[in-house]
Design a protein around this nucleic acid. Structure first.
Lengths: 371, 371
DNA sequence: AGCTGTTATGTTTACGTAAACATCCGGTGG
DNA sequence: CCACCGGATGTTTACGTAAACATAACAGCT
């Protein structure tokens, strides 16, 4: 009955995992795995249940045309043998892997992580697994490398969380059947793109500050190679121009709190700077520290608005007014879009935007009287 | 030559992705995918190169016994057809997936994310992919669910980033051939465990504060169901007892900055509290805010030490003294351990500890004169 | 009764790869 | 000169599943 491995199947029991090879270090251990029928196959189940393998398959996939009686027998046999469908064989036969690859830069930014998490959750809900393809440094070569790996990987679709122009190099060859959805890009004409509404969010931030009476709004921008940063910057310009306000010089960081601090040192020195829109919360954090160190109070002297609404934002000094991004929704839409493409229900380019919501906390106030 | 899909293989080109089905919405689209030979198989390559499929296989896997001449021809044919080995077929034949599953709670904690990232990177270096299995809520049922999915998944090994007792339920059945490595656990007797040296790190923090002259050290602990939190708490107790110091009442949070703030409100009210060891940086952040709001200066009145050294820690007000965790190393060791088990080079239980390093910043100082 | 349609089940086959075995070749030593 | 060896290559087979096709049993109808 081949229940040799029963003990090892309960990780709580003694001698879990590789129970067999126990103290075998003495003799020159046989290199080849014995692998004595590690898992039961359909044939095994079929034999035990006294039916054909095909019937087992039907039960396994919940297909109709099986008597309740037969189904029960098959299920019993499955349980007895601990049968698990072999996903490799399934994938080979069906020509699909039920897996989505996610390619992204380092998981050091909140946004990417939260999006990834939402993608994984949504995918799981659809019966899809998520394979992670991190790329340490955002050079074109690295991206290409990741995709080369993906091509050999068991993946039906890919979600790219990065600026899409990094994979526009002609040498990147996606197998034709792999569907792609991109986050954080403007390539809606060539790809399906899902993104937060950077423009609308930024606009809300700027208008909020102007509405408080600030003459203009400074911008602590993200790195130039980030499309999200670019969009926020553009929107900031547009909002100010539209309101007929003066455009202060741009200050740039690299998303990190440290860069926000460095940039903040410049801003803190400017007496005429009373309102800053930071392109993310981390930089806003650094900015708060720089302002504090220079005796400029927030929000009495300077108002600060961030972007992202990371969980810690409410614990900053002072709690940060910021734009809440709905990463969960972004991830959900990504999965939805990419699976629609996989299922070929429709071809759908274009960009889907998820609104950002301004969360008012304590880092904004009207400008000091004199200004 | 079947190059019908050539255009679609360059995502930069016009009409990328599902180019075929263009405007076919008019006629009742054929439900079945035509799937006209999406990818080339070994047989195709073999035909073009004028050799047998087996020879293609040998070239593909870099096996010896192939003339340089033949190899060149095969490689040329592969390139021409854009051949990519089918990983499902490979996995089926070889009986292994070259994939590691990572099961974890939400990716909201820095530690998990950084560990995950390191795992993915290390795994990629070994030619392994990483499949993500998030579990939203840490109930036993959920964990069991994730594992059920994993069992059907294409995975050779599993790395668990969570308290292992959550998967000790007898109903969790891992297929016997799946190897498990656990992070953040004390089950070194039954599993292979890799973890940060919570004990040593905590000890360093406490001794640092005592060394500065503080009479004792308060502890802002993490949630009770976290093993890491438990270890830090135990080590805190041990270090104080060992030094013959009084044991202040424990204050508990849930890892979040918000909970740190709430706990901090209590601590700020206690005049005799001059030194706090927070179980993570987020809670330390909230604590800083609470102290600030109650006019207790850090580090002049109260010293604070965190745990994790998240990137933002250096931008807190003031920059936080904290214990740096080497998540990259933890991830690397996990992959190494789990692959060693997969390759059955040895059976290896026990716990591997990665040291934590105390990073001195500006949140600690000697206690105020009177105390 | 004989035919048809329906339902439950079994049999054959193919997915793409790679191990195991078979064959062919030129060269070497007795 | 021939048996033999070893390297290069081809052929067969099996991995586990599920689609496609085949069969069998039986009910309903004329």
């Amino acid at each position: 009955m081949e229940t040799v491995d029963d003990a090892a199947m309960n990780p709580g029991g003694p001698g879990a995992a590789t129970a067999g090879d126990g103290g075998g270090t003495a003799s020159p251990a046989p290199r080849r795995r014995t692998r004595a029928r590690a898992t039961a196959s359909m044939a095994d189940v079929a034999r035990l249940a006294g039916v054909s393998a095909q019937t087992v398959s039907r039960v396994s996939n919940g297909y109709p045309g099986v008597t309740e009686e037969t189904r029960r027998q098959v299920l019993a046999a499955m349980k007895e043998l601990g049968y698990r469908p072999n996903s490799a064989a399934r994938a080979l036969k069906r020509g699909e892997f039920r897996t989505i690859g996610v390619i992204t830069f380092s998981l050091s930014t909140t946004g990417n992580v939260r999006t990834l998490e939402a993608i994984a959750n949504s995918a799981a809900g659809e019966g899809y697994a998520v394979t992670l393809l991190p790329v340490a440094v955002p050079t074109q070569d690295e991206v290409r490398g990741a995709f080369t790996r993906l091509e050999e990987l068991a993946v039906d679709a890919v979600i790219v969380i990065m600026e899409v122009h990094l994979l526009d190099a002609a040498t990147v060859q996606l197998p034709p059947h792999v569907q792609v959805v991109v986050v954080d890009s403007d390539a809606g004409d060539r790809y399906t793109v899902v993104d937060t509404d950077q423009h609308g969010g930024t606009r809300a931030a700027v208008q909020h500050l102007l509405g408080l009476g600030h003459r203009t709004v400074w911008h602590l921008a993200g790195p130039e190679d980030s499309f999200a940063a670019q969009r926020r910057e553009d929107a900031w310009r547009a909002a100010l121009t539209e309101a007929g306000r003066e455009l202060p010089p741009l200050v740039r960081g690299d998303w990190s709190a440290e860069s926000g601090y460095r940039a903040g040192l410049e801003l803190a020195a400017r007496e005429d700077c009373t309102a800053v829109f930071a392109a993310n919360d981390q930089m806003a954090l650094g900015l708060l520290r720089a302002l504090h160190e220079h005796g400029r109070r927030v929000p009495e002297d300077v108002s600060v608005v961030g972007f992202d609404d990371i969980p810690e934002a409410s614990s900053f000094l002072p709690p940060l007014t910021t734009l809440h991004q709905d990463f969960a929704e972004v991830g959900r839409l990504c999965v939805q879009a990419v699976l629609r493409k996989v299922r070929q229900e429709e071809w759908e380019g274009g960009t889907t935007l998820v609104p950002a919501r301004l969360v008012l906390r304590e880092s904004t106030a009207p400008p000091p009287p004199g200004r």
